[in-house]
Design a binder for these strands. Structure first.
Lengths: 132, 132
DNA sequence: CTTCTGTTTCCATAATTCGAGAATTATCGA
DNA sequence: TCGATAATTCTCGAATTATGGAAACAGAAG
């Protein structure tokens, strides 16, 4: 993955509606969800959602398949993996202790049973005001 | 982290210059780099870079500290971790086999010595460019 | 063929973002 | 104090993006 592709993927996620769609598709797993159900659940106008889904699909983070007259959208996990690898590549320059906790904590958030409250993992970003 | 914060972080990364800055800071590690050096290395006008750095800092992904008359920017690893946790939260709904390879592969890209070809790690990420 | 449903495309408008010139602030050394 | 260096803020034109109404398209059922 190159910078240009990564920017496309990040731009795709950098919008409230699209991020909500992506996260909903994440939780839906490989089975995905039809566009109409996404629109209803997230209260987005169908045509607006359609353009957002187009952007997500075009970025490679989401894929689409037609079933009957519905179009089912789902996360493209390998696309997501490519993005994360790109963001973290060479992050620690031979010092794995720097960025490995980053991954393990994210992994805990990701692969834990869903009934775990998110705060029990301690991942609060501190918004410090230094030279802002 | 909530949707709004995540959108801010993703928007911060969803721009060529800012993504390059972020990745350069990633490779620089906790020591970081002064703004001027970033500007020179990446060929970005100082004032333009400054506004980008402000956006990155405000998003919580980057932090700044003054040293003499330089301002040193570095990655805020806990901010990055918060973003990744948010993106991956509940990704597999109790089926870790779905999203765990996603993390382990990203981890290999992240915490390996630099300049290693990907296949020397045993399993390379097969980047697929699906339809749009 | 006709109708209904689900989804997308086209188009116009409103809002946001990017980049750089000019001016400003902060720090250091003499 | 002054001058030089490092970085930021202000501002605005140009470009991009988000949104929804109207129309069109695709498949299913009659």
């Amino acid at each position: 993955m190159e910078t240009e592709d990564a920017v496309a993927s990040l731009s795709a996620l950098a919008q409230t509606h699209r991020l909500e769609v992506f996260r909903r598709l994440m939780s839906a797993g490989p089975d995905g969800l039809p566009a109409g159900e996404l629109a209803a659940e997230l209260s987005i106008a169908p045509n607006t959602l359609s353009s957002h889904l187009k952007i997500l699909t075009h970025s490679g983070l989401v894929r689409a398949r037609r079933v009957g007259r519905s179009i089912i959208y789902s996360v493209n996990f390998s696309g997501m993996q490519g993005l994360m690898s790109f963001l973290l590549r060479d992050c620690c320059q031979g010092r794995p202790e720097i960025c490995e906790p980053l991954l393990s904590t994210a992994g805990q958030a990701a692969c834990s049973p869903p009934h775990l409250p998110p705060d029990s993992l301690g991942g609060q970003p501190e918004k410090q005001k230094t030279h802002d």
